[in-house]
Structures are given as structure tokens and as C-alpha cells.
Amino acid sequence: MRLIPRIHDIYVGRNVLFTVLVVWLVLLGLDGIMALSSESKNIGVGSYTFGHALAATAYTLPRRAYTLFPMAAVIGALMGLGQLAATSELTALRAVGVSRRRIALSVAIALSLLTALMVVNGETLAPWAQNRADMLKTSAKYNEDLSVERYSGLWAREGNTFLNAMTGEEVLDGDKGTRLVLHNVRLYTLDADGRLAMLTYAATATHDAKGWVLAKVRRDVFGERSVTQQQVESELWNSQLDASALAAGLAKPRNLSAGELKTSIEYRKRNGLDARDYEDTYWSRWFYPLNVLALCLAAVPFAFGSLRSGGMGKRLFLGMLFALGFMLLQMFFGRMAGALKFDYRIAYALPPILMLAISGWLSRRRVG
């Protein structure tokens, strides 16, 4: 099979790209409107306004485009090929000697361009914009001085004390609800002249119903010509910092690039922390291109069968059903990997393999 693009490759690829882009824009528009409606419920909380809701929704669009692209790709590919099948153009291509494999390759090459764009978006614009959206909502709703820096974690201010935590998470606390645990915490206390008066390091800062507790505390108190050091195993921290605001301001795995996720996974494993959420997101990024292309290639054989006699509604229904089935299968294997603690690479490799195998089996049955 010659890999040099021919006019029929360009024609098939152009039709598929057009329908994918249309479906993608429609899904993104609907998702954006629903997100704006959901954000509007927070108007009036703190200083949160409609302008904040609109800006926060706009910031999330790159991430939403990244998330919706696999579904848009399979629905658009099925609709594009279905239109060619309904007008007998696929039959004409087959009659002049164009194989199914060649048509599938034309679809794969066309979609690989958009997939590559989404991979770049998922590593650059989407995490940055989502982080901006989260911080915008948190700052407006809780009226807290919060910031999440790329390499230095969470920052918050209370009076003349500045808190820095490298990472943290909310954990279940039995029947008592959840508690917030911050790791590698530093508290910088300034005097009236703005000079550093005290530096407190704590391995963890935990907030529950009783308040804040610092564990494995080391404190340096700076005098004019001296430094006094204190160490305690744990102590109460009298702070009015809102734990909900801090939890909302923590950098979530979806807001990190693959490199930052890998660094976070290594850090959490070194310190005996649970890294499964980060591993899940990390390997989903690596398998994203494979999943998109495998999903679309697995759907291609349907265009040669029942879609010839079906209308737009049938193509749309089958595309959504196929995409939804794949997403549920992938979610199932991902949850099983987290629960049973087996390799996430296996969890993300199995769904595309199963989809391709089922599609190949159905295709052979039709041919036979």
C-alpha cells in the first residue's frame, strides 16, 4: 500500500475533518452553556459575580475541548463516512480499488492532526487555563488571598503570616466527614516592619472539626542578632484560614502537565503518600492519542455496513453509543486499577485493544 497521499485520501480526510469540527463545536458549545449555568448558581457567594462566572467558564474551555475531543472524533468520523456511504461514494471508492484499510488510514491521518493539537493543548494551555479558573472562583467566593504557583505549591495569607504548602489532599475521616491535610508546610511570620520574625516548618498541617494541628514542627525565631530554634512533635495552630478555600485552591492532577505529574508521583511515593490519582491522570495523558485513534478506527467498519441505509439520526446514535461505551469501559478499568492497585498502563491499554478486537470481529462477520 503506497503511503503517498492521493486525491481520494484528501477528499475522505477533508470530509471527516469537517464533520468532526462541526460536532466538536456543537458539543463544546452545549457543554460551555451548561457549565455557565452551573457557575451562575454561585453568583452572590462572596464577591462572585456574573463576570466571574463568565470568565471562569471561558478559562475552562481548553480543558473541555480536550475532554470532549474523543467523543467528537468518533461521532464526526461516523457521520462523515456515513454521508459518503449514503451517497454511494464509499462504494465507488471500493469499486476503483481503494481498500477499506486505505480509507481507514485516510481517516486516521486526518484525525491525527487534531489529536496532536489536543495533546499540545492538554500539556500547555488547558492546565494553565483550568488553574486560572479554579483560582478565580476560589478568590472571589472565599475572599481569601490565595495563589497556586507552578513549582512552589499553595500560598495563602492571614494577617502577617504567609502559608506555603507543597501539596495536600482531602481525606475521609470515618463518620466525621473529611479533613484537609497539607504537606511540607512553611509559615512565614513578619514583624511590623515587614522583616521575617519567625519561620515555622511542619511536616503536615491537618484541619478537622477541632481546628488546625501542626505535626513535626520546627520553628526558627529571629532576633536582632540571634536565632532561636524550637522543636515539638505536634501543636495546635490558632488560625482562621478557611480549609474549604485552601482545599479548592490546591493544584489538582488535571491542572498539571505530564512532567509535573511525574514529579508529583515521585514526590508522593518518596514520602509514602497516595499517588494513585496522579498516576491515573498521568497515564491517561500518555494513552490519549492511542485511545482517540483506536476508537475512531474501531468505528470505521460501521460506515461500510448498516450506515449506508441509515439516516443522520442513526449515525449520530451509533456514534454516541460507541463513544459512550468506550468511555464507560475505560472508566471501569481505571477504577479497577485504583481499587485493585494494578498497573494503570494495563488499564488504559485494554479498552482500545478490546474495541479494536470487537470491531474487527464484527467486520469479518459482515464480510463473511
Rank of each mutant, 00 (worst) to 15 (best):
D343T: 12
G319N: 06
W155F: 10
N131T: 13
A65S: 03
M135Q: 06
H207Y: 15
A243Q: 06
W237H: 07
A58T: 10
H52P: 04
R195W: 11
L117T: 05
A299K: 04
G310K: 06
A337L: 09
D280E: 14
S88L: 09
A140C: 00
L256Q: 12
G46I: 01
A92N: 06
L182H: 07
A104P: 14
N255T: 15
V20E: 04
Q330D: 09
W24N: 00
M135L: 11
D173E: 14
A110Y: 01
R2D: 12
A140N: 05
A303N: 09
L172W: 13
V74A: 00
I358H: 09
Q330I: 11
H207T: 05
L90W: 09
S239H: 14
Q130C: 10
D343S: 15
F332K: 04
L90E: 08
G44I: 09
N143Y: 02
L318D: 03
S257E: 09
A303W: 06
Q240K: 05
R195C: 07
G368R: 08
R195M: 06
A245M: 04
L81K: 02
S112E: 09
E279D: 15
D31F: 04
G153C: 11
L261V: 13
A205E: 11
A339Q: 14
F317I: 15
L250K: 12
Y267M: 14
S244I: 07
H207P: 11
Y151D: 13
Y66R: 00
F162M: 14
L354Y: 00
G319S: 08
F322T: 13
Y142Q: 09
G249N: 12
L321Q: 08
N160K: 06
E123L: 10
L136A: 01
T228A: 01
F50C: 07
E158F: 03
A35P: 00
Y188W: 07
V45P: 05
L113E: 01
R94A: 13
W24M: 00
L111D: 06
L196H: 11
K262I: 14
A126F: 03
R186D: 09
D173W: 14
T206S: 10
M34H: 10
L321F: 11
D145P: 02
T189P: 13
V292F: 02
M166R: 11
A116M: 01
Y282G: 02
F50R: 10
S257Y: 02
D145W: 04
